[in-house]
């Protein structure tokens, strides 16, 4: 089924920072009778510099799979994905990305500072710059006071914040956040939203997935709605709301074909 594009291109002549072309991802299982799961089916999208892009869909829609393709964790079955015009198979593509995985734990026996120093070294940030950079991101995510504590003593919210900190350590131009607010309390969510806003104001591009729509409306420039691996809609939040004549949540439900009372 082709995507119901609401608005397609942005400013003419602008080059996308992230581009997905006709992407198909299949998981092979050995289970009898169910050998292939199509997690993503013919997905195409583009994200432009400076945008905050919401990648929406219910659980199991294929969001994490798509993100994993962008980072080279999952092989593509067909199609291709590019970041900064480089195919994602190439590790070079990852130099200017910040990535926050869905539900991740970090090396528990390290302190926040040690963890960030480790990642900074992998990015080959010059030695002299590492210290100030760590100070900066820790302040940004509000972990300044806990920087010398081992991560295993952190609360869930703090773990999410150290995740954000590591995603920012290389001053990335593109942030890919997989469900950055899942499992957080309302205050935590608000913090994350603020952080995204701040990044946007610094001119960064943010691509993040979510299944919670409340937060999306306020921060996203554009959204895409994915359902069962297929792109159902993409465009500005305001355009979607206009088209379906209701709020984003109802639009979302309509798009994925969920009729209240029919379930």
């Amino acid at each position: 089924m082709p995507a119901q594009a609401v608005t397609t291109a942005k400013l003419p002549g602008m080059k996308p920072i992230l581009k997905i072309e006709d992407l198909v991802v299949e998981y092979r299982t050995r289970e009898f009778g169910q050998r292939v799961t199509v997690a993503v089916n013919r997905l195409s999208l583009e994200v432009f510099p400076g945008e905050v892009f919401g990648f929406l869909g219910p659980n199991g829609a294929g969001k994490t799979t798509t993100v994993n393709v962008l980072l080279g964790f999952v092989p593509v079955t067909r199609g291709a994905a590019y970041i900064f015009n480089v195919n994602v198979r190439d590790p070079i593509a990852r130099q200017r990305i910040g990535y926050l995985p869905e539900l991740t734990y970090y090396y528990k026996f390290l302190t926040a500072e040690e963890l960030l120093r480790f990642y900074a070294r992998i990015f080959r940030i010059p030695r002299a710059e590492i210290g100030p950079r760590i100070d900066e991101v820790l302040k940004l995510v509000g972990l300044d006071t806990a920087r010398k504590r081992p991560i295993k003593t952190y609360s869930k919210g703090m773990q999410q914040r150290i995740g954000l900190a590591q995603a920012l350590i290389n001053e990335p131009d593109l942030l890919i956040l997989d469900e950055p607010t899942s499992g957080l309390d309302p205050i935590g969510r608000m913090n994350v939203r603020e952080m995204i806003q701040r990044l946007k104001s610094k001119g960064k591009t943010v691509f993040f997935s979510s299944h919670e729509l409340g937060e999306v409306e306020t921060v996203c420039d554009r959204v895409a709605i994915l359902h069962q691996g297929e792109l159902k809609a993409t465009g500005r939040v305001s355009d979607l709301v206009e088209k379906y004549k209701c709020n984003l949540e109802q639009a979302f439900l309509k798009v994925i074909g969920y009729e209240p009372g029919h379930e």
Binding site: L71, F73, I92, I97, Y99, L103, T104, Y119
Partner: peptide, 14 residues
């Protein structure tokens, strides 16, 4: 198991 491999391999490391 701890999924630390995700943030690690998302960095420029082979």
């Amino acid at each position: 198991e701890n999924r630390t491999i995700f943030p690690l391999l998302a960095k420029p490391i082979t």
